[in-house]
Simulated assay, not measured.
Amino acid sequence: MSAGEMVQEAPARRSLRPVLFVLTLTAVLALLFGVPWWTLISAAQWPAGVAAAGTVVFAGALVAFPVLMFQGHGRGRDWAARTGDTILGVIWVVFVWALAGNVLRLALAAGGVADPARSRIVAAAVAAVSLVLLIWGYAEAMRVPRVARVDVTIPRLGAGLDGVRVVLLTDTHYGPIDRARWSSAVVDVVNGLDADIVCHTGDIADGTVAARRAQSAPLGDVRARYARTYVTGNHEYFGEAEGWLARMSELGWEALHNRHIVVERGGSRLVVAGVDDRTAKSSGRPGHGADHATALAGADPDLPVLLLAHQPKQIGAAVDAGVDLQISGHTHGGQIWPFHYLVRLDQPVVRGLTRHGARTQLYTSRGTGFWGPPLRIFAPSEITLLTLRSA
């Protein structure tokens, strides 16, 4: 093959990418909406009027969904984002339980139940389970998170810091639904925990600082005995990362943009470091990118290190850097069951305390807020109280 032919072939491959993306998206949406439509409407053989009305609802949602998501998350129109996110959450739940319902269909068929009774039983069961889970999931998403209390033993932690209390907030995702009152209630809970250090590990908001100023304002009232620290998440790099770093500094938080501070108590010291999200470098913003060496530059290597890093998959670099405990979010614990199985394909951990290597531990929070659909199903939100213990 000549050099000219190779040059012509590369643009040809690139030109196919948008086509493949559209085809893939179309197939996914057809499956996501088609399985529930077939299960609830078509297979059940309802009277013509009912079937027509149900088909119109599904078709309308299918056509409107990508438009709403583009207008909402692409153009920043909150009303469209709220509507599109709600459709996404509802159709995901119904899709999952429609799949389960079709297992029930096989059992009914084996038991001798004929159509249309069989399909109508399945449709009714899927609709009922989905409705209950959607109502419960919405209540779980909008409630003030429960406190998850975890003791973490750090062998290198000095006796003077034994019992130090670290509160972790993450993935607040202030967004299209105004949650200013929720934010104030979260801060009230945090202030009742008598924290020594409060950490926020990113994805603070979806949208600009100006649009989310009221929702983020209560963070300025968070109390901590020694430090309030913050690092960026991947969602900051969808918008204005520098703006959110400045906003958190304005609210009195230490923005750990690849740097560290040292906390001292009772003659013992702890390095509290932070790195940018792993997507920061590819965002193209100058000076951004997770850099553990820079974050720990000048730190005493004999001191224990608490590292803030948004994504659990940043743990490999933390192990290499000799970090004692990394705290992260990002996964939301899956947020809407069974999405955690897909999250696990991308992340080494979905939630909880895990060990990596001889020294390093990782705590992954299920998140304080939610992204997108206002639902949490079998993945409750949390405010985490980590009590650090010396050996």
Rank of each mutant, 00 (worst) to 15 (best):
Asp151Tyr: 02
Arg120Leu: 00
Arg181Cys: 02
Glu250Pro: 11
Ala123Arg: 04
Ile177Tyr: 12
Arg376Lys: 04
Val164Gln: 03
Leu325Gln: 11
Leu131Ala: 11
Leu16Ile: 06
Thr331Ala: 08
Gly220Leu: 04
Leu134Trp: 00
Gly284Trp: 05
Ile315Ser: 01
Asp320Pro: 00
Gln314Asn: 13
Ala52Ile: 07
His73Pro: 03
Ala241His: 04
His310Cys: 10
Trp79Asn: 11
Pro18Leu: 06
Thr294Phe: 00
Arg359Val: 07
Ala100Asp: 11
Asp151His: 09
Leu296Glu: 05
Val50Ile: 13
Trp136Leu: 10
Val231Pro: 03
Phe70Trp: 14
Gly84Cys: 07
Leu23Glu: 03
Gly298Asn: 06
Ala127Arg: 01
Ser184Ala: 15
Ile91Thr: 13
Trp38Tyr: 15
Val263Glu: 03
Pro338Gly: 09
Ala109Ser: 09
Ala358Trp: 03
Asp276Phe: 05
Ser268Ile: 04
His235Gly: 07
Gly202Phe: 03
Ser119Asn: 12
Gln347Val: 12
Thr170Pro: 12
Gly287Tyr: 02
Val222Tyr: 09
Ala139His: 13
Met69Gly: 01
Ala128Leu: 12
Val166Arg: 02
Gly274Trp: 01
Lys313Asn: 15
Ile336Val: 15
Pro380Lys: 00
Leu325Lys: 07
Arg351Ile: 12
Met69Gln: 07
Thr294Ile: 01
Thr368Asp: 11
Trp37Glu: 02
Ala185Thr: 05
Gly89Cys: 01
Leu362Glu: 13
Arg247Cys: 09
Leu388Cys: 01
His292Phe: 11
Arg389Ile: 05
Arg118Asp: 00
Phe95Leu: 15
Ser381Leu: 01
Ala107Val: 15
Ala139Arg: 14
Trp97Leu: 12
Asp178Gln: 06
Gly192Asp: 13
Arg156Gly: 04
Leu245Trp: 05
Asp78Cys: 06
Asp171Ala: 04
Val19Arg: 08
Ser283Gly: 09
Glu5Gly: 14
Leu68Pro: 04
Val187Tyr: 05
Tyr363Gln: 06
Val343Ser: 14
Ser249Val: 13
Ile121Thr: 11
His356Phe: 13
Val323Cys: 09
Tyr363His: 05
Arg265Phe: 01
Ala280Arg: 06
Val7Met: 14
Val343Ile: 14
Gly369Lys: 00
Thr368His: 05
Arg344Tyr: 13
Phe370Cys: 04
Gln326Glu: 15
Leu303Ser: 10
Ile383Gly: 05
Val164Ile: 15
Val7Gly: 07
Arg355Ile: 04
Arg212Ile: 10
Asp171Phe: 02
Phe238Ile: 14
Ser42Met: 08
Val90Met: 08
Val150Met: 12
Glu382Arg: 00
His73Phe: 15
Val122Leu: 02
Ser130Leu: 01
Gly158Asn: 11
Thr83Phe: 13
Asp203Lys: 01
Asp276Ala: 07
Ser119Glu: 11
His200Ile: 07
Pro373Gly: 04
Thr208Pro: 05
Val167Lys: 06
Gly74Ser: 09
Leu169Thr: 08
Arg359Glu: 13
Ala255Thr: 14
Asp277Ile: 12
Ala127Lys: 00
Val272Leu: 07
Val152Glu: 14
Asp188Ser: 06
Thr83Gln: 08
Arg181Asn: 12
Ala317Gly: 15
Ala379Asn: 01
Ala27Asn: 03
Gly334Thr: 07
Arg105Ser: 10
Val28Ser: 07
Pro155Lys: 08
Gly192Leu: 02
Trp79Asp: 15
Gly60Arg: 02
Val7Trp: 09
Tyr226Phe: 14
